[in-house]
Amino acid sequence: MSERCAYPSDLSDAGWELAGPVLAAWRAERRRRALASGRPPEHELREIMNAILYVDRTGVRWRCPPHDFPPWETVYGYFAKWQKEGVFAQFNGLLRELVRQQEGRTARPSACVIDAQSVKTSTGVPAAGQGLDAGKEIVGRKRSIVTDTLGLLLAVLVTAAGVQDSDAGRALVEHIAAEHPTVRKTWGDGGYRQYLVAHAATLGIDMEIVQRTPGTRGFTPIPKRWAVERTYGRLMLHRRLARDHEALPARSEAMIHLAMTDLMARRLTNESAISWRDPVKPHQSQIPG
């Protein structure tokens, strides 16, 4: 890695030991498929990944990272290629299995939790990709995710906010049945209709609706569902996810995969996730300019 002041969002050496082989294998395969080898890559994969993590963590525009990173066109180009070729999803799956094994679980889950979150969009998101969540009165997009019972991401789908939870849930349940055949149980909230419960049953998945106890006020962890709600909270540590800034829903899904892999890598290497509110002396790069 080139000599520069490290940013809090950078991969540590231990984190790079996890990410490096995946990205190196991607680059080697891509060069193998090329008709001509061409000139050697100009920028290190670690620096490109650090630049992408910087955008995800801090929420800056793609055109506005610090100048000691590779050019933003290069960084965004790699991000787009990795999203399109499923590198972030692949890395997420690898780290999820490692975390589960570290926690004494089997590599593949047998149960999961599903939930949806509507968020506002930035001005750069095409109007055609947005919608109105009438229940929450939010104009923007909806993120529907499935996690295991540890809160680790299994699947994500980004749609317009006007899409019903059950419609997005149907696609996710079908994905889980195909990609995670060991899953036999799932929990969701009251936003998921009875027809989705019946559809899940046809796929061999028992779906149970868990709702808040009537009369409960304030924040109360809901059994089983708390895992996915906690995951949404942890994802919000990545400022790029405070709103949806991506022009394409698939790029929004990649940002969620990226945030989750960052959280899992830190968990595996015993590093603290950046909360931006930690009562510690700020790093020089964290001081507002």
Rank of each mutant, 00 (worst) to 15 (best):
E3M: 13
D10C: 10
L11D: 01
A14E: 15
E17P: 08
P21K: 14
V22T: 15
E29N: 07
L35T: 12
A36F: 15
S37N: 05
G38E: 10
P40I: 02
P40Q: 01
R46Y: 04
E47V: 07
I52D: 02
L53V: 10
V55Y: 03
T58M: 07
G59N: 06
W62E: 06
R63C: 14
P71N: 02
E73H: 05
V75A: 01
G77T: 05
Y78D: 05
A80N: 01
K81G: 03
W82H: 08
A89E: 14
N92Q: 14
N92P: 05
G93P: 03
G93T: 03
V99I: 07
V99S: 11
V99E: 12
R100G: 08
Q102L: 14
Q102Y: 10
Q102F: 08
T106N: 13
S110P: 05
S110A: 11
C112T: 00
I114Y: 02
Q117A: 02
Q130P: 08
Q130K: 15
G131L: 13
D133C: 14
G135D: 06
G135A: 12
V139D: 00
L152S: 09
A155Q: 08
L157Y: 08
Q164L: 04
D165V: 09
G169Q: 01
G169S: 06
R170F: 02
A171F: 12
V173Q: 04
I176V: 15
H180T: 07
V183N: 03
G191H: 03
H199D: 15
M207F: 02
R217G: 00
F219C: 03
P221R: 06
R225T: 08
W226H: 14
E229H: 05
R230A: 02
H238W: 10
R239H: 09
E246M: 09
L248A: 13
P249H: 00
R251Q: 15
S252R: 00
E253G: 12
E253T: 11
H257N: 15
M260V: 09
D262P: 01
L263E: 08
L268R: 15
T269P: 10
A273G: 04
R277H: 10
P279E: 06
I287A: 01
I287G: 04
